[in-house]
């Protein structure tokens, strides 16, 4: 029944085509190659323009910035904003703090998330409840639990330390890491693991020698994503650190606005100093990252 109706529709569509009806032209406009290319080039432009703009601003003379918002520098290109940004603000310290927090918390996240995900998928540990709890924790706005987390960190005397922030980032990123690794572990054929068990491997050995090598791309993608999330994280860093000693890059440069008025040249240079390391990671691992993100995102 449905088929016959479908064929009729196809025929009328073909007919409309031969007649060069409005449908024909609409089809040309919206599905034609030029339209597609223009759309995609606009997309590329939209992505790059803001980034290009602050890169240019960071190279303009401060006087020029104050008098004109033009995209390209008109006068002399200068590095003064970069020099000032590093001289006026302990940027190096902020970047160092961010690196320490991001790297250590990521290693801890992976150490926790990989065995957990494996256990949940293979042995159904925690039934439906544990995965639901993990997902619920991810959906919950972090601000909701920020008062008790602040209190707990204070209780163990880790406020204003990198160690405190490392622990909080590790815990906050754990749910997303489980979510990302999930689909990679699911894709491993069960038989491989069963063969390992028959060979006398323990469950830990199977995980480490069979599963982990197979999901290396997934671990890499998850690691890079949690690394970047920790590097970018704002709220917990805001409430848990309050000095140069432990401020991370986002908090450090957000203070910048208040302390120095709006020095857009220096601000652009400072912002770029934190952006560039991330972009290098993105370019190095782009294939992996796209794979990791899209696998986790569309599963029903």
């Amino acid at each position: 029944m449905e088929d016959v109706k479908g064929i009729e529709h196809f025929e009328s569509a073909v007919h409309a085509f031969e007649q060069k009806t409005p449908a024909f032209y609409l089809n040309r406009i919206f599905f034609g190659r030029p339209a597609r290319i223009i759309l995609l080039l606009l997309f590329i432009l939209a992505i790059l323009l803001p980034i290009f703009y602050i890169a240019m601003t960071s190279l303009k003379e401060p006087i020029e910035i104050r008098t004109s918002g033009a995209l390209l520098p008109r006068g002399q290109i200068t590095t003064i904003n970069w020099v000032k940004a590093f001289a006026n603000v302990p940027l190096v310290r902020y970047l160092f703090n961010s690196t320490v927090v991001a790297v250590i918390s990521t290693i801890l996240v992976l150490l926790v998330a990989v065995p957990t995900t494996y256990s949940i998928i293979r042995f159904k540990t925690g039934g439906w409840f544990l995965p639901a709890w993990i997902l619920g924790t991810y959906v919950m706005p972090p601000i909701v639990v920020s008062i008790p987390i602040f209190a707990m960190v204070k209780m163990v005397n880790l406020q204003n330390t990198l160690a405190g922030l490392i622990l909080v980032h590790m815990m906050a990123n754990m749910p997303i890491a489980v979510w990302l690794i999930d689909s990679y572990i699911r894709s491993i054929p069960r038989e491989l693991e069963q063969a390992a068990w028959i060979d006398g491997y323990s469950k830990w050995e199977t995980l480490l020698r069979v599963v982990v090598p197979l999901i290396r791309p997934g671990i890499l993608a998850t690691g890079v994503i949690t690394l970047i999330l920790s590097w970018n994280e704002f709220l917990f860093a805001l409430i848990l650190t309050y000095g140069v000693k432990s401020n991370t890059f986002p908090i450090g440069i957000s203070r910048y606005i208040g302390e120095h008025g709006l020095q857009f040249g220096e601000m652009s240079a400072a912002a770029l100093a934190g952006i560039v390391p991330i972009y290098i990671l993105v370019f190095l691992f782009s294939r992996n990252l796209v794979e990791g993100l899209t696998r986790g995102g569309v599963k029903g």
Binding site: W231, N232, P250, I253, S254, S268, I278
Partner: peptide
């Protein structure tokens, strides 16, 4: 993946 603080500045 751009840090939100940098996006805000931009």
């Amino acid at each position: 993946f751009t840090p939100p603080v940098a996006i805000a500045m931009i």
